[in-house]
Nucleic acid binder design. Structure first.
Lengths: 133, 133
DNA sequence: CTGTATCCTGGGCGATACTG
DNA sequence: CAGTATCGCCCAGGATACAG
């Protein structure tokens, strides 16, 4: 975490206090990575917000074993997901969204809704922009 | 965009239709990059949701000229930001959040609020996790 | 079944220099 | 002032093989 020098004369923090953005950026550096959203939204669809490793793997097309493990580990570390190991053979592991994780699902749903409602506009803006070179 | 094989027996899409996640992932691949959030949230603080290039540069500590240009260009392409060039010498350019962009600020504010309310818990979860190795 | 260990590549992004 | 061009580093993440 880097601290920027405090120069009152040049510091524009009276306009943008830059605390919110910093924290949100840190959140996005977690949940904004390639697979976290998929895992959270997929887990949400399972009964009891619970699924085992292999179920997630099948439910998320294109994810590699490696990235599923790593991303789940990060989500677990952030307290968004809980891991439960059943000592059987073959081993079974279940992942479940925590209360904290569920609380995050609501603002995320806000993004989902925005996309649903505005994606067309974005696409149109893009083609318009690209048309103008 | 890759299509997964359609095997009804194994396809768990009745559980997770995987359309929402795909669109949200695409959104996050834009707005979830290193600087977009900073620009949007910073622009929001300026009167009239407007600021010139150099103001943004000063208001966002650490951003390079290159990334400011590139990120602004992407936001403009997506229709989230409008660029206005005043043909003076020296040239002046102002950036303004569009209606579409403003509509995105609301779900983004949801994320900001979540961070504000839950960041402590995340940090605590992390130290707990790290303590257990 | 659920991971872990390596290797490898593409691209995001910073630093720097130059332009109208 | 507001860009564009070039170079180079780093690392997220894919492929593959192996392990408990």
């Amino acid at each position: 975490m880097k601290m920027q020098p405090k120069n009152k004369a040049l510091d524009p923090s009276h306009v943008c206090n830059s605390r919110d953005p910093l924290a949100v950026r840190e959140l996005l550096s977690k949940v904004g990575d390639k697979w976290s959203i998929f895992i959270l939204l997929t887990l949400e669809k399972f009964p009891g917000y619970r699924a085992r490793f292999s179920e997630l793997e099948r439910a998320i097309p294109g994810i590699s074993q490696r990235m599923l493990t790593l991303t789940l580990r990060n989500l677990e570390r952030d307290g968004l997901v809980r891991r439960e190991l059943f000592p059987e053979v073959p081993p079974r592991v279940e992942y479940e969204i925590t209360r904290l994780g569920k609380s995050l699902l609501q603002p995320l749903q806000g993004l989902v809704d925005w996309v649903t409602g505005h994606w067309e506009q974005v696409k149109k803006a893009q083609t318009l922009f690209d048309a103008g070179r």
